[in-house]
């Protein structure tokens, strides 16, 4: 069967099954199991409305459990077993083996560097762009253009930036804009992507380029939400624009800055496509997610691969807990 036909069929069957399930299960509950008539009408209605939420929730909860919650535990288990020994329990052997691997420590080092640089730079650029575009007439167009990379895939962005970093030997005309500018300033052409440790920063530039738009949109909304009286009062008191920005505005949107920062941090922890497409972890640019992919799907070492995945999970955990605590506080 042609995949396109299969896709259309899947949509029809998938949607049909969803609608069918919800309709039929509600009918079954109301008409057959606890009918809203006869002697026990009140009790039946009460019982039906106790069960109904779970009818609504079941498909989603089932999918979430099977596709997200259970795999976390399964991966934890895999990281403690050895595939070559038929899945025997080996304790922390995989973690020990991983800690002997210099590539793993390189990945950790790079990931930490990414964690510091990318959220900071994206948030800073985003804040700058938000503040500047909010006060000019064509700000919305400018915003749109800065926001645009959000729609581009990490791989597409890698192609775009690989052209920027392109290298031609001395004597040939440079077709990468970075080397063109560099040689124009009198430098020797450089192979930017192989010069450790700076090449990691050239990869980070790609993600900063993508994430700045996100930061800008969120922060711009927050800046607009600042009560005007506070700014006006500062003007009356003779504050300079810079003082207004750093002393009045930034403190008032601090919680939004934290949100933006953590959201980008999550993206950074999972960063994989950019490194795979641009250097594949060579020249000391390895990161955790690509290291994990290497181990799982190139070396087929599921134990160490799962151990690397657990390290990523461990790094995500503080943010997860913090988010959950915040939501619990809000819904209470």
């Amino acid at each position: 069967m042609h995949p396109a036909v299969q896709a259309v069929l899947t949509i029809v069957i998938g949607l049909g099954a969803c609608i069918g399930y919800f309709w039929a299960s509600n009918q079954l509950l109301d008409r057959v199991i606890f009918p809203a008539r006869g002697a026990n009408i009140a009790r039946n209605i009460r019982r039906a409305s106790m069960i109904r939420p779970w009818l609504f929730l079941f498909p989603a909860m089932f999918a979430l459990g099977l596709y997200l919650a259970w795999p976390v535990l399964a991966t934890l288990w895999l990281s403690l077993t050895d595939r070559d020994q038929g899945g025997a329990f080996v304790g922390l052997a995989n973690y020990a083996q991983m800690s002997q691997d210099p590539k793993f420590w390189e990945a950790i080092r790079n990931n930490l560097l990414w964690l510091v640089v990318v959220p900071a730079a994206s948030t800073a650029f985003g804040l700058l762009a938000a503040q500047l575009t909010d006060r000019i007439g064509w700000g919305n167009i400018a915003k749109s253009l800065i926001f645009m990379p959000m729609a581009i895939s990490f791989v597409g962005a890698s192609v775009i930036w690989k052209l920027v970093y392109d290298f031609r030997p001395v004597g040939q005309e440079q077709i990468g804009i970075l080397n063109a500018i560099w040689t124009g300033l009198g430098g020797e052409p450089q192979t930017w992507l192989t010069m450790a440790p700076w090449n990691s920063f050239f990869l980070m530039a790609v993600l900063i380029w993508i994430q700045t738009g996100f930061a800008m949109v969120i922060l711009s909304a927050a800046l607009r939400g600042i009560p005007e009286e506070t700014v006006e009062a500062a003007i009356v008191d003779g504050a300079s624009p810079l003082q207004i920005f750093f002393r009045i505005k930034v403190p008032q949107i601090r919680s939004t800055i934290v949100v933006v920062w953590t959201t980008i941090t999550l993206v950074v922890l999972k960063i994989f496509d950019i490194v795979l497409a641009m250097t594949n972890g060579q020249w000391e640019t390895q990161v955790l997610a690509n290291y994990m992919y290497d181990k799982m799907f190139r070396a087929f070492d599921w134990g160490v691969g799962s151990a690397a995945a657990m390290v990523i999970m461990l790094l995500v955990l503080p943010i997860l807990v913090w988010n959950v605590v915040n939501v619990r506080r809000e819904t209470r």
């Binding site: 409305s49 106790m50 109904r52 939420p53 779970w54 609504f56 929730l57 909860m61 979430l64 596709y67 997200l68 919650a69 259970w70 795999p71 976390v72 399964a74 991966t75 895999l78 999550l266 922890l269 999972k270 994989f272 997610a289 994990m292 799982m296 599921w302 691969g305 799962s306 995945a309 657990m310 990523i312 999970m313 995500v316 943010i319 997860l320 988010n323 959950v324 939501v327 619990r328 819904t331 209470r332």
Partner: peptide, 29 residues
Amino acid sequence: WMEFPGRALLVAAVVGLLVVPLQLALIPL
């Protein structure tokens, strides 16, 4: 919009799952 015990807990669970890296799901799935 529906009242049932454990609702807040489920919302919290969804928020937690929101950030689980899908890298962990690959091999088991």
